[in-house]
Structure formats: structure tokens, C-alpha cells
């Protein structure tokens, strides 16, 4: 079943056939990030048992700054999105082990872990004008001093809502709701004309 299921996985952007359009250099490179496991973690940050469970399972505690994205075990990322809300993003190769470990640490205690792996499509925006392109459609302050690498924020960009994660000064990952992904991509490409946007290989 596992193999069949893996083959059956299909990105929301599959219909655009980005592979055939990749190439060229521009002020911005647009691409699709690799599929990932993604979980919503909820819980009381001031409950030591909860904090300990998270720390034990992930190697990073939940007491992060708002919007902080912290690298944790298995190349996963824990992003604080609200007072009692985090996003855990893990590579697909992890096969759910990290989340399973977290779920078992949390079991019997407080908090909740919800699989939302299919809920968003990851779009990468990189290059000299990456921040400028995003600034055509979002009101958050993208100045590196205000929104440095390692930060994330949920915001509206163009025609969709996205979780924006700045990986480097000129590299962003946008987690866009799956049903919006295609028309958001079209919006990005259209606005990207200003910066000669190209599709990343």
C-alpha cells in the first residue's frame, strides 16, 4: 500500500508541468519545494509537561519567539505561529517518524497534533528580487532587519494566504493552501514579469 500511495501523490501544481518550463535566469527564480510532512501542533506553552514532551521529541522546545523557525531533529523545522500554535515541517523521507514520536510523547497529556501534510503547497521564491516580488502583494515588512532569515509569518500575498518562511536574505518558501496554489502561482508569474521571473530547475 505504501508504494502505491507514494506513486499516487500529486502536487497541486502538477497540471502546470513546471519541469518542461524550467530554465533561464532572471531576477527571481520560482519553483516548487519538495513535498513535506506538515503538522499543526497546539498546546499550552506554559505547561512544563507539554514543553518537555516537545523538547524530548523534537530536540527543540516550544518557547520560541513569535514567527521564529527553529531547526530541529531530522532536518525538521518548528515554526511558532501563535501563542499556542506551531507548525512542524519534516522532510518526506522522515516518513512520519518524528511526528509519531511527538504524538507518543504528547499522549495522555495536553496539546494536539494534526497532520496537514496535504494542506499546503510549498513554492520557493529566490534571487536578487525575491523580496521585491513578494512586496508586490504583501503588506508585511520584508526588510531583513524586520524579517530576518529564520523568520516566518502568515500573511496574505496577492490572491492567497501564505505562510512565508525566509530561509535566507534572498530565499523564501511560501506554504500556500493547496486549493489556491495554482492560481497563486499564476499570480506570482504575472507579477514576476517585472523581475524577469524564471522557473527554477
Amino acid at each position: 500500500m505504501a508504494d502505491d500511495a507514494t506513486d499516487a501523490r500529486r502536487s497541486a501544481l502538477a497540471g502546470l508541468d513546471l519541469g518542461s518550463r524550467a530554465g533561464g535566469a532572471g531576477g527571481v527564480l520560482l519553483g516548487e519545494g519538495p513535498a513535506r510532512e506538515s503538522f499543526v501542533l497546539r498546546g499550552p506553552v506554559d505547561d512544563p509537561a507539554f514543553a518537555q514532551a516537545v523538547e524530548t521529541a523534537l530536540g527543540a522546545g516550544p518557547a520560541l519567539e513569535p514567527g521564529e523557525a527553529r531547526e530541529c531533529r531530522e532536518d525538521a523545522l518548528l515554526i511558532r505561529l501563535g501563542p499556542d500554535e506551531w507548525r512542524l515541517v519534516a522532510p518526506l523521507s522522515d516518513d512520519g517518524r518524528l511526528a509519531a514520536r511527538l504524538a507518543s510523547e504528547l499522549a495522555g497529556g495536553r496539546g494536539a497534533l494534526v497532520n496537514v501534510s496535504s494542506a499546503s503547497t510549498v513554492i520557493t521564491v529566490a534571487g536578487e528580487h525575491a523580496a521585491d516580488l513578494l512586496a508586490t502583494g504583501t503588506g508585511i515588512d520584508l526588510d531583513p532587519a524586520a524579517f530576518p532569515p529564520g523568520r516566518a509569518a502568515r500573511t496574505r500575498i496577492g490572491n492567497a494566504q501564505a505562510l512565508v518562511h525566509r530561509r535566507a536574505e534572498d530565499a523564501f518558501e511560501l506554504h500556500v493552501p493547496r486549493s489556491y496554489a495554482r492560481s497563486f502561482w499564476e499570480w506570482l508569474e504575472e507579477r514576476g514579469r517585472e523581475f524577469d521571473a524564471a522557473v527554477a530547475l
Partner: peptide
């Protein structure tokens, strides 16, 4: 700009849309 034309307003598609 960025609000009109094909694809500029959000169009939500289900997974079986194709």
C-alpha cells in the same frame, strides 16, 4: 494591476480538478 486578468483573482481547485 495584479487584480484583474486570467489567474489574478483566486480560483480554488479541488484535487480532482484536472
Amino acid at each position: 494591476a495584479g487584480l484583474i486578468g486570467e489567474g489574478q483573482d483566486a480560483l480554488r481547485r479541488t484535487a480532482a480538478d484536472d
